[in-house]
Design a protein around this nucleic acid. Structure first.
Lengths: 373, 373
DNA sequence: GATAATTACTGTAACGATACAGGAGATTTG
DNA sequence: CAAATCTCCTGTATCGTTACAGTAATTATC
């Protein structure tokens, strides 16, 4: 039953300097209690103390009631929750963090060289969508990838500034993964590793993409194929190469070397290298691009060499946004849904923080080529 | 002079349950002091207490020494700073935040519908670059722009979760600006307002861009011009229209209505509308686009209508990334440097937090057309 | 040479939350 | 009916930091 809490304000202190009004309360018995500040027009932010005063309960009780602890009576919980909802109570993050060490922060560590076409946008909003409705905030921790990528990781670990970390540009033998694993920091990687550590990840099956890309090209009669790859040290470089090679031998095509540039190179360099390649004696008739940004420069380059897409050469490309079809509908474009990746990664870190087994937090998305292509 | 602090550990308590070792210290006199925990292998994070113990000073003294307070001796400060640097002391954010209310957080409020081509990426890394080396962290607070854009602002204000806020997609009469102003929250807007509130902002001079765009088109003999505008309620829509109209009357051109789509419309809609426009009886010979993403669809649309860029029609477009020239070199593209905008915005909020006058924190970037264009 | 002022440092309380160790009152047990 | 048990609630200490109100020792003042 809801006992009316018979409390009574017996003393009001007005502190003009501090512009606050405090008061004492007499409870049912005759012990006094500090009632806290009288919020002027509910302007001040409510705390547990506010609810404790309003309900006539102790601060501890309120705290435990809101946590649904087993040693609090059912109708007390109800009452506390009601009041908390009414006054819009939200736990003070600094208080929680100081006392418990829980930051309620997910750190997204991004290289400033992430891909041009909306990668950051998509992954950020994918993660955000999952974090909405949880107490977690998303903090962006950037690093110049040329510099030491360990710096932001060490910072987060040393200062304990996040409960979970999401990293991208994963390498097969990634020291960031090793360090976070060692220190027990929950994390998820965009891209797999190959170092004997079982950890949460989300990845796109670039091996399948590359292999299937070769298949589509061969199906169109293209047998001399070139591929533009990511930087050498990233995990997905290896997967791409593997799929590419498998595709070549599986479908009987040959590789035209094209390794003077990577998908990270300046667009001008990619353009020039593609023109040179396509104008040369051993010009390929099939091209594979692992990233949408560089595809645009490649198209310009091959056209500068006098070639025509669909006639002289076919091009399969991955993309993050649905842009390529507007540029040249002839491009065989395959979407990598980075927003979905962000969502998976966020789900994985949250679950990892919650203690889920890492092997249950690994997802691999399959490339989806258009039906006939 | 650096007096050697003659302290002595006189009692060690080993608490096996909590796995910690604490100890008492006898100082030069004979008062005892709690020496805190003996960090096992410097694994635990150092706090003021650690430094206090190591230097033999009080916690308060250490705190004030690190703040360079005037009532602390010069060599004491030196000594404290040395130790702090040695052990890699970093203030606990939760402690500071709880005590002072200072969050050391800048919130970037982004609509999930920000432009495709790298807007988020650029602004985030621009802001980050300025925040690097400061104690500030960047928190991304997203909102579905269809929903109430006030929600994230109210959240930040009610929970005091940031020291400063950066917003984009500013409107001439923006309730977010009014609210933050009223509550005294430092902020900077990407885009100006027109509501009698002087506040920090950064903006791109879209009025000049649109006016100059008309001039370039007229200089190429184009007199029938259409423009694709941003959504109606944004500040820069008004600026664009103003510049556009001024340009038309100034250079003697006429406007071909093109308002069935905005730069926010789906690319398919933009494509179709452009094709219809260009295939119609009143097809313009000059086009102006306020955003790079939609320009790509427009180009596809006008080519689908059988028109050729540079021959039948010229196109002036803004862009965030240097992509358009690879798509059609004929496009007269003008870069809006969003990374620089992020830097300006971050500088502005930080200065605003520091108490700088808002009128000194307003920047307007001029469009830079290529030399001859 | 007593008092005042200055210098350099320190202890206590508080920010808001939670872990922990009670503790009062009702209910069951033998 | 005393003891044990169970229910439900509460006070205290603590996380790391800083504001504030001291205090002891030295130096300046008259």
């Amino acid at each position: 039953m809801l006992t009316p809490s018979c409390l009574q304000i017996v003393q009001i202190r007005i502190d003009e300097e501090k512009e606050r009004t405090t008061f004492m309360v007499r409870l049912g018995g005759n012990e006094m209690r500090d009632g806290g500040d009288l919020k002027d027009g509910a302007r001040e932010r409510p705390t547990l103390k506010t609810i404790a005063f309003m309900t006539g309960l102790g601060i501890t009780t309120v705290s435990r009631a809101l946590k649904d602890a087993p040693d609090i009576g059912a109708d007390t919980k109800e009452r506390v929750r009601l009041v908390a909802r009414q006054i819009g109570y939200q736990p003070n993050r600094a208080g929680v963090r100081l006392r418990t060490g829980k930051t309620n922060v997910i750190a997204l560590v991004l290289s400033i060289e992430e891909e041009l076409m909306g990668f950051t946008n998509h992954i950020v909003f994918g993660i955000s969508e999952v974090l909405t409705g949880t107490p977690y905030h998303l903090v962006i921790t950037p690093h110049a990838s040329a510099r030491d990528p360990m710096v932001p990781i060490r910072y987060i670990l040393d200062t304990g500034s996040a409960d979970g970390v999401i990293i991208s540009r994963t390498e097969p033998n990634d020291p960031r993964v090793a360090l976070m694993e060692e220190r027990g920091m929950p994390f998820a990687t965009h891209g797999r590793t190959n170092m004997g550590i079982v950890h949460p990840y989300h990845d796109y099956d670039n091996e399948t993409f590359a292999r299937e890309a070769v298949r589509r090209l061969v199906a169109r009669g293209r047998k001399n194929i070139a591929i533009i790859l990511p930087e050498g040290h990233l995990s997905y470089t290896g997967h791409s190469i593997k799929g590419y090679r498998d595709g070549l031998s599986l479908h009987g095509a040959r590789s035209v070397p094209f390794d003077s540039v990577t998908v990270e190179s300046p667009l001008t360099a990619i353009h020039d290298a593609t023109r040179a390649l396509m104008a040369g004696p051993d010009a390929p008739d099939g091209l594979i691009s692992m990233a949408g940004g560089c595809t645009i420069a490649m198209v310009a380059g091959l056209e500068a060499a006098g070639k025509k897409l669909g006639r002289d050469v076919d091009l399969v490309s991955k993309q993050n946004s649905d842009l390529l079809k507007w540029i040249r509908p002839e491009i065989i474009a395959v979407n990598e849904d980075i927003r979905a990746a962000g969502m998976e990664l966020a789900r994985a870190v949250l679950a990892s923080i919650g203690g889920a087994a890492p092997e249950s937090l690994q997802t691999l998305y399959q490339p989806s080529f258009a039906e006939d292509a």
